[in-house]
Nucleic acid binder design. Sequence first.
DNA 1: GTATATTGTTAGACGCATCTAACAAAATTA
DNA 2: TAATTTTGTTAGATGCGTCTAACAATATAC
Lengths: 228, 228
Amino acid sequence: MNSLIEENYLKALFSYANDQGEVSVKDLSEKLDIKMPTVTSMMKKLSTKGLVQYTSYKPIKLTAKGRKAAGIIIRKHRLTEMYLVEKMGFGWENVHEIAEQMEHVKSPDLFDRMDELLDHPKHDPHGSPIPDKNGKVDWINYPKLSECKVGDRVRLAAVVNSSADFLSFLNKRELQLDTEMELVSVEPFDNSMIVSYHDKPNETLSLLVSEKLLVEVISSLDSNQQSP
Amino acid sequence: MNSLIEENYLKALFSYANDQGEVSVKDLSEKLDIKMPTVTSMMKKLSTKGLVQYTSYKPIKLTAKGRKAAGIIIRKHRLTEMYLVEKMGFGWENVHEIAEQMEHVKSPDLFDRMDELLDHPKHDPHGSPIPDKNGKVDWINYPKLSECKVGDRVRLAAVVNSSADFLSFLNKRELQLDTEMELVSVEPFDNSMIVSYHDKPNETLSLLVSEKLLVEVISSLDSNQQSP
DNA sequence: GTATATTGTTAGACGCATCTAACAAAATTA
DNA sequence: TAATTTTGTTAGATGCGTCTAACAATATAC
């Protein structure tokens, strides 16, 4: 099997891939906080193992095998997060660190059991989709709240950032997954948004926040989306 | 904190200590399947860290600090085993391997939560005591079934071996923790025992098995235990 | 109490994942 | 397109945990 270290590279390659499925050495290096030469040499190793497609000076891509391996790790991470929230009473802001460790546990049975006890959840507590047992994930491309228009009625579908700080911020504002909001107005100066939800008629969300909230648009004021 | 590797040394030192709390380099080496020179050098390292008391050519002993660290690891292991059995429906024969990995997870909260959800269990699914949050364990010194006398009525309190093979063997014979048995007879030739329990009037247990079963004696035929 | 066997240590090497320093290729800017 | 910046690679070193080979101390046997 792959070592913990290799698994972290695979996960990063999976998570930070662009639309072509590619990641640069520099990006990987920064995300993992590992210097570039180290990344280069690890890419050679993973390439030998058939997990990545690597050619000098070209961006890195996971092979089908590597994508599957990475998907399974992410499946374990997200199932764990869901289990911790749903079955053990943890808050969504406190599960990432634990899942980060549990994702490396080698026991298909453990995670299958979580999946079963959770009734085969489709997404984790942060709205991210849970890959299937083959590591395959079908991604719904939700827009960011920041891209929505005044008058849009939306449902909070996922958050882009799972840091405890950010999630605690949302907790304080009583913003949960599935909360329905209406975009009241946008401040042109700083692109902050005023939204209404629950019993809150006008909460202000900075651009930094609205960019991290992925939403499903339920209804829109103007039905024509694009017209020049 | 201590690395996974250090943790495994600490656990072994804790588990294989004799009545003086000592372990030889040779024993550690064999239990961990690591060559003696490697053990020696690791002992120097752990000694520097104040976790073991080590002098050349002398047996090794955990310090109070080391004992606490080891106890906490074992606490995590045993809580996990109990959680897997009680809350996730695993059989007692399938939890050791998983707990072996989970015991290294750094998250006091996770194990505190298990402890709470399990209502502060005193022992794991194999009857081994669960150390408290300070790593302290109070050990009840149960006798082996093999040391009991004909006519003794006993309760299965713990098993000494947690291998899947052994536990599956007990499953097949419907022997669980807390099963009450009566020692019917002992075969002088091979010291195998015939015991009765549940609806089984005479099950044969080899010496190899009866040595691995720790029991609480409920009643004995002759009340005088020792008389020359 | 010496000889032998067992146990433990020292010395030196190795693989892995990491680093820094120096260099090379590719991309960007002028 | 030439100069410069950015990105990536090569070479060589380091720390960790491991090993084997050789030697040393302790325990056991005779």
